[in-house]
């Protein structure tokens, strides 16, 4: 509980996207999230960690506007989202959520058609739709499969097509639920490379995952969902808190586990993210 209110630093800037005191649940059920607050700042990589069923996805769905909190607010640039069709429509253009399983999200026959779904619904002229589709596909490294049928693609490619569909909406924030789950190392590398391209073009990327090693190597900040509340802080503070991770049903990143066993502290400012970093530290 001590973590919940601690922040990296009192920041003057208003976060791009935030949840404030969000209670959320499903009809007839108890709260899944109980007074949850998170802050997502422009350009900050936040990893949302938690066991399966902890409420990670529900939080993402609240942030994306897909799920309406029972109480509490979702704030964009400090302004609370109202769940009416106009504001929701505007919200969806700024915040896009990509769910875990691509096969339930790709509902068109071919790649280009599926990616164009959002831009077409925005009522954009054909030329611009085409342009957006082309740039989304190339950002995701999918230009060479644009004319293929969805079911001819590998699982990793299908996952990236699902992301491309969200990217074609040109959102400011991209929320990804388990973007690397089920991918082999090559698929993970392709996904992460694509996300980096998106970040360079100004998109803020947030991912939910239960892979702490991935979070350790990727994130700036971590928000852990535990017992219906969220503990957010900078990467090292959260991922070196073994009690918290244990309680949340999460593993400890291997560099942290190893350095702890060797009696070494982990540098908050420059965490050793890779085997090379750790070796440099020990060598």
């Amino acid at each position: 509980m001590t973590h919940r209110l601690s922040r990296r630093e009192p920041s003057a800037s208003v976060p791009l996207l935030a949840a404030e005191g969000v209670h959320a649940g499903y009809p007839g059920g108890p709260d899944v999230l109980d007074c949850v607050s998170v802050e997502l700042r422009r350009g900050t990589r936040v990893a949302l960690l938690g066991a399966n069923g902890s409420g990670k996805t529900t939080l993402l769905r609240c942030l994306s506007g897909a799920h309406r909190p029972r109480t509490g607010d979702v704030l964009v640039d400090g302004v609370a989202l109202t769940h009416r069709s106009g504001p929701l429509r505007a919200h969806r253009q700024r915040v896009q959520l990509v769910l875990q399983d691509p096969d339930d999200q790709l509902f068109s026959a071919d790649v280009r058609q599926d990616v164009s779904f959002g831009p077409v619904n925005l009522g954009l002229p054909d030329d611009e739709v085409r342009e957006r589709v082309a740039s989304a596909l190339s950002a995701l490294g999918l230009a060479h499969v644009a004319d293929r049928a969805v079911h001819q693609l590998s699982y990793g490619q299908r996952k990236r097509v699902a992301v491309a569909g969200a990217v074609a909406m040109q959102p400011e924030v991209l929320l990804l639920d388990e973007p690397t789950a089920g991918l082999d190392p090559r698929g993970v590398a392709a996904m992460l490379a694509a996300l980096e391209r998106l970040e360079r073009s100004g998109t803020t990327v947030v991912m939910a995952t239960h892979d702490v090693d991935l979070a350790w190597s990727w994130a700036d900040e971590v928000a852990v969902v535990l017992d219906r509340v969220v503990h957010q802080d900078v990467l090292v503070k959260v991922l070196t808190d073994e009690a918290l991770l244990e309680a949340a049903g999460l593993a400890v990143p291997w560099p942290v586990a190893l350095l702890r066993r060797l009696g070494r502290e982990v540098d908050v400012a420059f965490p050793p993210r890779t085997a090379t970093d750790v070796a440099a530290l020990l060598g």
């Binding site: 896009q96 769910l99 339930d104 509902f107 569909g165």
Partner: peptide, 8 residues
């Protein structure tokens, strides 16, 4: 949900 998010 995926369709709604993309203004379907």
């Amino acid at each position: 949900e995926a369709q709604t998010a993309r203004l379907g």
